[in-house]
Simulated assay, not measured.
Amino acid sequence: MSLHCEIRPATRDDIATIADLADRIWRTHYPGIIPAEQIDYMLAQRYSHAALLAQIEAADQWFDLALIDGKPAGFAQYYRSAPDEIKLDKLYLLPELHGKGYGSRLIYHVKKQARQLGGKTLILSVNKHNKKAISAYQHSGFVIRDSVMIDIGGGFVMDDYVMAKTL
């Protein structure tokens, strides 16, 4: 049975909810993909109140919250990375909701928004060992465009594929 899915713009009132979702999702999904110390570091770096507030209120960035039957279940954050390119920087859904079509709905929503923003290409970065996410993105029409290793500080790197989809 499908539950009602609503995707709406996040506001400053959603910051604690987003941080809680990120903590729950990351601590379930990323062990075995990246070390626990890197999970802690990246959560502190990317999901602090100040970081989330800056992303929610930035002019050329968008942050959306997914609600399933009225309950926060995931989120997406994206921004203009070039005049005709939008980067999907964050897309997360509670693990218990995987495989039910909600992740696809969130990706579809971001693709639609990116087109409305004049984007011709949607890109994202995904950890090379995150097989489940890579498969989901390929199923949505993304292809691997590049391989990158980015120093994020704290002695950690992101070893990612850059994936792209023409809109």
Rank of each mutant, 00 (worst) to 15 (best):
R115I: 14
H109N: 09
P95Y: 03
G119P: 05
K111F: 04
P83D: 09
L106G: 02
P83F: 09
L106N: 01
D84A: 13
H109I: 09
G118Q: 06
I144Q: 09
I144P: 03
L88R: 01
I107S: 03
L122N: 07
I144V: 15
N130L: 04
K71C: 14
Q77P: 07
H129C: 08
V110L: 05
K120M: 12
S140Q: 11
L88N: 01
G118D: 04
H109Y: 13
K132T: 14
G103Q: 01
G119Q: 09
A114S: 11
H139I: 08
A82E: 14
K128T: 10
Y102D: 00
H98E: 04
D89E: 15
D146P: 12
K128I: 12
K132M: 09
I68S: 03
H109W: 10
Y78K: 11
K132E: 12
D146G: 14
E96V: 02
A133F: 05
L67G: 01
S81I: 10
K128W: 08
V126K: 06
Y102K: 00
K128S: 08
A76S: 12
Q116S: 14
K128A: 09
T121I: 15
V110W: 00
P83C: 10
D89W: 06
E96T: 07
K128V: 12
H139P: 06
A133Y: 02
G74M: 00
E85H: 13
G70H: 04
S135Q: 13
R80L: 11
V126L: 07
V110R: 03
K87D: 15
S140C: 10
Y78R: 12
T121C: 13
K112W: 11
K111N: 09
V110A: 04
K90R: 14
E85I: 12
K111E: 10
N130P: 09
I107K: 02
I134S: 05
K111G: 04
D84S: 13
F75M: 10
S104A: 09
I134C: 08
Q113A: 08
E96N: 12
G141F: 04
A82L: 11
L124S: 08
S81P: 08
F142I: 01
K100V: 00
K100A: 01
K131N: 11
P83T: 11
P95W: 01
V143Q: 13
D69F: 05
A82T: 10
F142C: 01
L117I: 05
I134G: 03
A82R: 14
A114Y: 01
N127K: 09
K132Q: 14
A73M: 02
I144D: 05
G70K: 02
A114C: 06
Y102R: 00
P95M: 02
K111T: 10
Y79I: 13
